[in-house]
Simulated scan of single mutants.
Amino acid sequence: MVVKDRIMETALKMFRTYGVKGVTMFDIARDCGISKKTLYEHFEDKQSLINDALRELLNDHIQFAEKNHTETANAIEELVNQMQFIRSKARTLNPVMLFEIEKYHPDTWKEVELFRTDCILYGIKENLKRGMSEGLYRKNLDIDIVARMRQLQLEAAFDPIHYPADHYEMHKVMDEVTTHFILGVATLQGHKLAYQYLQIKEEV
C-alpha cells in the first residue's frame, strides 16, 4: 500500500472513531507510523485530509448504490441491501464525525448536502418508482413526499441529538426505521416478500 493510501485509511478510521475535531495531524502520523513531515508531503493540511476522507466515504456509498440498484432482483431486496450496507458502516462510524464536519467545516459539508440530493434522495425516488412498477409498493404513493420522509428518517438515525450513542445503537435504529418504512409503502405482495427478506414472522 502506498504511503498516501495508508494515510487516508488511517485518517478515515480515526475520524470515524473519534470525530474530526479531536484528531490531530500528529495523531494521524503516529498511528500511520510516519513522521509529520512525510504526512505534510502528501496532504497540505488537516482540512485537505478531511475533504479527501469524506469524499472517499461518500464515493464508497455511491458505488454501492449504483451496483445495488442494477444487481438486485426487486425494489425490496435493493432497500434491504441498502439497510445492511448502512448498518455495516454505522457500526464503525461515530455520528460525532458528521456533526463536527457540519459545525466546523461548512465548506466541506456542502459536499454532504449535494450527496443527500444527488445520491440519497434521487436513489430513494428511483427505488419507489421501481417498487411501484413491480407491484411491490402501493400505486398511490406521492413519491416526492414519501422520498423526503425516508430521507429524513435516515438523517435522523445519524443525528446524535435524536438518537444519542449512549442510548441507541445506530444499526438497530436503522433496522427499525427501514422495516417501518418498507411495511408502510408495500402492497400485500410486497409485505410477503419483505417478511422473507427481513425474516419477520407474519402475524396470523
Rank of each mutant, 00 (worst) to 15 (best):
M1R: 05
M1N: 10
K4W: 04
D5C: 02
D5E: 13
D5A: 11
M8P: 02
E9I: 06
T10D: 11
R16D: 01
G19F: 08
G22T: 12
V23W: 11
I28Y: 06
A29R: 12
R30M: 12
G33C: 13
I34G: 15
I34R: 15
K37D: 08
T38K: 00
L39K: 14
Y40T: 05
H42F: 15
H42Y: 15
F43W: 04
D45S: 06
D45A: 04
Q47N: 13
I50H: 04
N51W: 12
N51H: 11
N51T: 13
D52Q: 13
A53R: 02
L54I: 15
N59T: 04
H61Y: 11
H61T: 09
I62T: 04
Q63E: 14
Q63S: 12
F64H: 08
A65V: 10
N74P: 00
A75V: 11
L79E: 07
V80N: 10
N81S: 15
M83K: 15
Q84W: 08
R87I: 09
S88C: 04
A90Y: 01
A90P: 00
T92R: 03
T92S: 06
P95M: 04
V96A: 02
F99W: 04
E100Y: 10
E102D: 14
K103G: 13
P106T: 15
T108P: 12
T108F: 12
K110T: 13
K110E: 13
L114I: 05
F115Q: 06
I120A: 01
L121Y: 03
L121H: 04
Y122K: 15
Y122T: 12
I124E: 03
K125A: 10
N127C: 07
R130N: 06
G131F: 14
M132I: 15
G135R: 01
Y137D: 05
R138D: 14
R138W: 11
N140C: 01
D144E: 12
I145F: 01
I145V: 04
I145C: 00
V146S: 00
A147S: 02
A147R: 01
A147D: 00
M149H: 11
L152H: 04
Q153D: 09
L154F: 10
L154C: 03
L154H: 02
D159R: 07
H162T: 14
Y163Q: 07
A165D: 06
Y168Q: 12
E169T: 11
E169P: 01
M170L: 03
H171N: 09
H171C: 09
K172I: 12
V173A: 03
V173S: 07
M174I: 15
D175G: 02
H180C: 06
F181D: 08
F181M: 11
I182W: 09
I182T: 05
L183Y: 15
G184V: 03
V185Y: 00
Q189W: 05
L193H: 02
Y195R: 12
I200D: 01
E202Y: 13
V204I: 07
